[in-house]
Design a protein around this nucleic acid. Sequence first.
RNA 1: GGCCCGUUCAUCUAGUGGUUAGGAUGCAGGAUUCUCAGUCCUGUCACAGGGGUUCGACUCCCCUACGGGCUGCCA
Length: 517
Amino acid sequence: MRQGSLCLCYPLGRPYGVQSHPEKVMSGIRVRIAPSPTGFFHIGNAKTAIINWLFARKEGGAFILRLEDTDTERSRAEYGEVILEALHWLGIDWDEGPGIGSEPERGAYGPYRQSERRHLHLAAAERLVAEGKAYRCFCTPEELEVMRRDVREGRRSGPLRTQWRDASPEEIAAMGDRPCAIRFKTPDGETVIDDMVQGEVRTDNREFDDFVIVKPNGDPVFHLAVVVDDGLMRITHVLRGDDHLTNAFRHAMLFDALGFDRPRFGHLPMVLDEHGKKYSKRLHGANLLDWREDGYLPQTMVNYLALLGWTPEEENRELFTPEQLIEAFTVRRLGASAAKFDRKKLDWMNGQHIRMLAPETLRDLLTPILARAGFDCSDRSPEWLTRLATICQEKLPTLNAIVGLADFFFREPDAYEEKAVGKHWSKPNAVERLEAITMLLETTEPFTSEALHEAFKARAEAEGVGLGQFVHPTRLALTGRSVGPGLFELAELLGREKCLERVQRAIAFVKEMGGTS
RNA sequence: GGCCCGUUCAUCUAGUGGUUAGGAUGCAGGAUUCUCAGUCCUGUCACAGGGGUUCGACUCCCCUACGGGCUGCCA
């Protein structure tokens, strides 16, 4: 019998295998995420992963990754890699999990791919049958359909209990090896769950059918597989989406029947899209990595998603690095109501996180984005690029916004913003002013933002006008726009020669404009 | 249909019987004698509805409405 191997093979308490974070894993708390590799890592999976990870790291527990790849229809090997990539990007590390590519599997409770645990699931089912807690059911799909219709149409009430529930061994034997499902024999009574998020929830077991745990084709069903896996992996806390709340009753019954200690459950509200609907897989942003694509920082996503359903003990604070989140995390502050994803707030938060970056880090993130937009940075010095990052840092809601903010460093302005032209270049003295600006740009030594600032200020004072009278026309000439990084910083970075060229072009433009109007 | 969960400003939320219902994002206005998509300041905006319980309900109970989930030989 494999019974012994089922629930008694691991010593209670600490695992004996190699941990990747032995120093962090010491509380006995073991949590997991169990995503299905079905294409991409959903934003909701990300939230669940983050909460579990924060909990494990805060409590000194183990964070486990298990791939639920049993749906052979939809699962593909390479999709597993996608999940890992998403987790890596977020900066979420795990202590036990499947090996991907050449990487070996790690952890003492493997395998960590559900498809490789089939024998464990089936053994558990057999044990339940042997103990009279589950039964073979030879009903045909047609028979089941009739029973369901009868319930629906009121000819029959109560949960599904098939005729095979109490069949004698002889009757079963008489069926030979005809295909049959294994159904769980739902016990009488009531199941109560003390949910970490939802509080106490209870249901009469009569609400539950004798659900299938092994399909006639021999495949274990999800409910059985999760319970067996969570049980054998000694998972202590199951934090997952609240779409599983009702399933938790089934799982609790199964944990009990198999003789496992039940984990604490915590059902987290789901992430809704901006319209309050379930976040459809087809929607842009449903894939966590869409956000990387759009120029969001992983630490922003961790911060934002963590706060979508959790609030810190310390009120009125919402900017956190991942490390700070770990430090601040407490289960009792998990909320129970669903939250809409707010892109605007995410933008703000991303801007805040971008500001926290070291200039060199920001530079390294920005350079490939500029390159992808067709702005070759290979001939710019690292110092120059760092400076670029610095002067743009506080203006960027997303990394990608650099393209629209700094394009003029890489190409001549091909048009001037119309409104700004009207405002700054249409006065009679426009050309005169641009010529004065030319002079300033030619003579200022050294050509630095500080010196330029001084020179411009002195000139404006001498003429008795505001600095803006000089700054705005210059900005328009140099960048083609009315908004952007600080003018003197930008001018320094652009270099004297380029600045002069562009002001000359502006003068020509203004003269032309005057001539034709 | 049955069962389960949820419902405080537009959005994320704080609030566990007595609060001017607080913060953040957004939005609006002002400021910033260099722009704003940045920064600072000010303002705007909420307890889903109805019954109870109570001296007193956002807070407790019931009902209704709305949203979500489960009800599969999907996970």
